[in-house]
Structure formats: structure tokens, C-alpha cells
Simulated assay, not measured.
Amino acid sequence: MRRGRRFIGAITGCLAALVVTFAAGPPPVNAFTMETLTVGSRGYNVDELQARLGFLGYYHGKIDGDFGWDTYWAVRDFQYNFMGRATGIVDLKTRQKLVAATKGWHYRPAGASGSSSSSANQSASSGGSSAAGSAAAADALPSTAGGLSQSDLSLMAHVVYAEARGEPFEGQVAVAAVILNRLKDPSKFPHTVAGIIYQPLAFTSVQDGQINLTPNAQAKEAVMDAVEGWDPSHGATYYFDPATATSPWIWSKPEIVTIGHHIFCSS
């Protein structure tokens, strides 16, 4: 009889624990569904769309869940840079490409503390950092500089740290300068910092995930020096490490200068 009472007590305890768990609410999940989004669409799907586009630097408006013309043009810019086509309509392929490009972003419900801007919707990943906009990367970076947003500067710092940590400081500045040089040539490269960095196969650190490492103060300083006009690469738009480069294509580029382990090249 005592065993029966103990068994019933254990079952009762488990049920109580389940009740407490469900009362606390389910864990947050992404709001992106399979719904096709276009001008006039509204709701959490659009809220997430705007936040993800803002995470990449394409959308700068208010995250309000209303698919207006600002959202439309941001979608077109993203599609053009990542997919080679621009419709302004968020279909399944666009959604998949956007999710793949914003792995460091996490959904926060509309109205949550700090969710009124794209930077607030950026959440830590890979041990407390994200590819664009982690709080640590934003520290000591101005809100704007050289026409770039703090999110742009932070994303550049992630790349500099991931691609050139351990290199001479001059080489770190040169990596940042390459991004800026590409930005000056929209006929050959995407016309936003995020578009340049997340362009397929553009940077090794994006492919292997090292872009998610938290940049240090030196990487941020290198970015700011490049933004302020220092270009040790002398106008380069490419660079590579000859010890690890496997593509014959990169060796065909005219070499400009070697700094540390990197050779900097022109188009």
C-alpha cells in the first residue's frame, strides 16, 4: 500500500511540474511562416522580415509589421544582391535565402523591450556574439561614420577580426579598406556593406562561421582608420592568403601589395 501511495505521489509531482512548465509559456519561436509577402501584407511575418533586412543593413525604417514601399525596396535590394533577381515579393526562395544570411538573428515579439529597431532584434550567437550588431562589437563604435551606420561598422569589425586577427595592424586596416573599395564600385559589387560581406563566396569567414567571433578593440580601430581614409591596400578590391588559396582565379588578379600573410589585388 505504501508503494502505491509513493507511485501516486510521484505521478502527481510530475503532473504538477508539467502544469508549471506550460503555465510559464512555450519557448519563443520564429514567426516566419510560408505566407508569401508583398506590399500590403501585415503581421508578425512582416515584422520579422523587416528585422532580418535591418540586421543586414537593407531596411532602415520602423519595424511595424506593415509591408510598405520602404520594405519593398529593401526586399528588392536584398534579392538583387543575393539572388540576382528582384521582384519585391517574398516567396519561399527569398525567405530561405534571407534566413540563411541572418543566422545570428533571433526573433523577438513586437512590443518586447528594445524591439523597435533592427539592432534590438539582434541576439547573441556562438558564445555571445552575432555577425552583425552584437553589443560587444558596437561598443566604442560611433552611431555613424563616413556615411556608414553603427551596424555596418560592427559588421566590418567582425570581418576584420575573423579574417585578419594576428596580422599586422596595417593588414587589418587593409582588409577593412577592401570592403570600402568594393562599396565604391557598385557596378561590380553590392552597394551595401552587408551585401558585400554576405555575397556568396566573398569572404571565407562567412562560410566557416568565424564571422560570429566577437571582434576586439584593435579590429574596431582598424575599421575606423579605414573609414577615415587610410588605405594600405592602395585601392585593392581582393585579397588572399597564398598558403591557403585554392582557386586559380584569384591568382590571375593583378597584385598590388603584400601585407603580412595576405596579397592584395585589384579587379
Rank of each mutant, 00 (worst) to 15 (best):
H191N: 15
Y198H: 08
A16W: 14
Y239I: 12
A138E: 09
Q50P: 00
V29I: 14
R6P: 03
F55P: 06
P200F: 12
L183K: 05
P26Y: 15
I8G: 04
Y107D: 04
P248D: 05
N81Y: 14
D64E: 01
L141C: 03
P27W: 04
V19W: 13
V159S: 00
E228L: 15
F240G: 06
R165V: 12
N181L: 14
Q50L: 07
A176F: 01
N121P: 10
F82W: 06
V178M: 05
R52F: 00
F169W: 07
V206S: 04
S267R: 11
Q122N: 13
G235C: 01
N181R: 07
L155D: 00
T94I: 01
R165H: 11
G88A: 11
G40I: 07
W105R: 13
A176M: 06
V39M: 09
W69R: 12
F22D: 01
Q172K: 13
G68P: 05
Y238F: 11
D152H: 08
F82I: 11
Y238G: 06
Y44E: 13
G43L: 05
A23P: 05
G128A: 07
V19S: 03
I256Y: 03
T204I: 11
A137S: 15
A86I: 05
L155W: 05
R52G: 01
T87F: 02
H106T: 11
I179A: 07
L92V: 10
L155I: 04
L15W: 08
N212S: 14
M83H: 05
V173Q: 10
D208F: 04
L49C: 04
M224I: 15
V90Q: 00
F7G: 10
I11V: 15
K188E: 10
V20G: 09
V193Q: 03
A174R: 04
T214I: 02
T214C: 05
S129D: 13
V99K: 06
E35A: 15
V99S: 01
V223I: 05
A245G: 07
I63R: 07
A110H: 05
V257R: 13
E35D: 12
A176Y: 00
T36G: 06
L180N: 00
S134H: 11
F169C: 00
V19E: 04
E163C: 05
A236T: 08
P248R: 06
P248H: 02
G146C: 06
T38G: 09
F264E: 08
L201N: 10
E170S: 09
P190T: 00
A140P: 00
A86H: 05
G61L: 03
G209A: 08
A23N: 04
S125I: 01
C14L: 15
F32P: 00
T71V: 01
